[in-house]
Write a protein that binds this DNA or RNA. Sequence first.
DNA 1: AATCGTAACATACCTGGGTATGTTTTATAC
DNA 2: GTATAAAACATACCCAGGTATGTTACGATT
Lengths: 196, 196
Amino acid sequence: MARQDIKSAETKDNILNTALALFRQKGYEAVSVNEICKTLGLTKGAFYYHYASKSDILIYSYKEEADRMAQYYQSISSEKPLVKLKKFYNHFIDFFQPDRLEEMKIFFKVQIESHYENFLGSSRIQRDIFINILKEGQSSGEIREDIPAEILADIISRYRFGLHIEWCILDGKINLISNSTRDFEAILKLLTPPNA
Amino acid sequence: MARQDIKSAETKDNILNTALALFRQKGYEAVSVNEICKTLGLTKGAFYYHYASKSDILIYSYKEEADRMAQYYQSISSEKPLVKLKKFYNHFIDFFQPDRLEEMKIFFKVQIESHYENFLGSSRIQRDIFINILKEGQSSGEIREDIPAEILADIISRYRFGLHIEWCILDGKINLISNSTRDFEAILKLLTPPNA
DNA sequence: AATCGTAACATACCTGGGTATGTTTTATAC
DNA sequence: GTATAAAACATACCCAGGTATGTTACGATT
């Protein structure tokens, strides 16, 4: 049973890797499931045995992203709250590189069409981390306390979400970095205690 | 030439109406283009002569929405800035009713997949109106002036956008109204001048 | 009024995601 | 070792969106 499982996991991994390679090379839509299979010397039957759909591949490839996010948060745990907030926020923004535009489009579409609980995964982690940082900042007096950290976190993470989707819809025509840094400066101002 | 144009516009309108009726009745995905055509006694050729794609229908149906938005803004022009802001914001939220969930899902998907300039249309109108209201509030002293109205408008409209997409992805499982009113209270606090 | 071009459709076909149903290989049980 | 069941694939097919190419009807031009 062990040998079979290993081989099965291998082919599943092979499918994922060659598929992602082809996507980066020719674009998601331009690559058919048949092409992925032909490249590997397999057939559709094998593909749909391992993956529920073509877009399912992307879900698997991004599942690890949530973990990396949490790891990054660990790596900056010693920083001050506001610095931490900025670094963690920028880490999100940096993830959306121009060459990943089409990929991200598909990813958002997949999340919308499928009742995709995993969104809750990566998004909840993001939200929870924001809450932690904000609460920390509230205790240290750097962040206003008249609004609960949960609400502030929701506003910030939904803003980021909206910005990224806008970026996708507008085909990357808005400058993500400049928009983001500009708005984040404002957000930091909004977060400072009103009577400071 | 006039009579032909009228007839053409009629069929285009007929396609739109029966398609929307079928969508509401059976759901967008469950209705095929062939079914729409058969209902009207037409063929695919006619359909794709008038519309670029199946999803193109939804775009046309929402094009008027931007106009209605602007109209509503006119109707509340006499209100005070903060009241205006709240009313206009809520007008957006109210648009997303539970029975429109699937429709909105498709709509967002369509916007993402097609290089959809019309998003710029309805979204720019929304943003411009926000800017107007915020600027008005800044002159009257109700809204803080240390952040440009444009940036504040971007943050608010992107938050709203993110909230609505989150609502779609989570299949309407978050309470849109309560979330929205709760967060908007906070946003109003964030907008008040810091030294007030 | 005959011609000609184009708008408004119809027909036939392609394509690619997804499925239903085989067939083979592998592990386990006796 | 053989029977059995399920995993891991292969084959054949469906289906719906979209396209390429016809055909007809209408309006404009001479």
